[in-house]
C-alpha cells in the first residue's frame, strides 16, 4: 500500500523548478502530483509519478540529487472534520508525521492526503482498521489516467 515518492533537492533560485520537470516531460514521465517544501536557501520538491524508477534515472542523468521515499496516501471524505478524524487515529496510535500534503486525483476529483510517517506500516494497519481507504499505487495511477 506504500507509494514511492521522489524527492529532489533544489536551490531556491528562479528557474530551478523547471529543469527537472523538463527532463521528466522529455522522457514522457507523467507527474501525478508535486509539492514543494522550501526554506529561504533551498527547497525540496516531492513528486509522485507513475514510473518512479524511470523518473529517478532520468533525474539522476540530468544531474539532480534524488531520493526515493515511501509515503502513504489516504482518501479523505469531502466534509468538515474529514482530516481531523484521520489525524486523531494517527495520534492515538502514537505515530509521528514527518510531513503531509494534499492533492486531488481521479475523474471524480477525489481528495487524497499524502503522509510521510516514521512508521508507515503501523500507520497503514491502524488506518485500515478504522475503515480509512488507504490508496494503493495501482488505484492511484489508474485513476490518474
Amino acid at each position: 500500500m506504500k507509494i514511492k515518492q521522489l524527492s529532489v533537492f533544489l536551490e531556491n533560485k528562479p528557474g530551478r523548478l523547471s529543469e527537472p520537470c523538463h527532463a521528466l516531460s522529455k522522457a514522457g514521465v507523467n507527474i501525478l502530483t508535486l509539492s514543494l517544501a522550501d526554506t529561504q536557501q533551498f527547497g525540496i520538491m516531492r513528486l509522485i509519478v507513475k514510473e518512479p524508477e524511470k523518473a529517478r534515472d532520468v533525474l539522476t542523468q540530468a544531474g539532480c540529487v534524488v531520493k526515493v521515499t515511501e509515503i502513504v496516501a489516504v482518501e479523505v471524505e469531502d466534509r468538515p472534520g474529514g482530516l481531523a478524524d484521520i489525524l486523531e487515529i494517527i495520534e492515538a496510535a502514537d505515530i509521528s508525521i514527518e510531513y503531509m500534503y494534499a492533492f486531488t486525483f481521479g475523474r471524480k476529483d477525489k481528495a487524497a492526503l499524502v503522509f510521510r510517517f516514521d512508521d508507515p506500516d503501523k500507520a497503514i494497519d491502524v488506518l485500515q482498521d478504522k475503515g480509512v481507504n488507504v490508496i494503493g499505487g495501482l488505484e492511484l495511477y489508474d485513476n490518474a489516467d
Binding site: 526554506t39 536557501q41 540529487v65 510521510r116
Partner: peptide
C-alpha cells in the same frame, strides 16, 4: 554541493546538516 548520501527529503534534517 548536496550529494545523494546526505540528501534527506526532510527540510529539518537538511537544515541540521547545514
Amino acid at each position: 554541493e548536496v550529494t545523494e548520501e546526505v540528501f534527506s527529503d526532510e527540510v529539518r534534517s537538511m537544515e541540521k546538516l547545514r
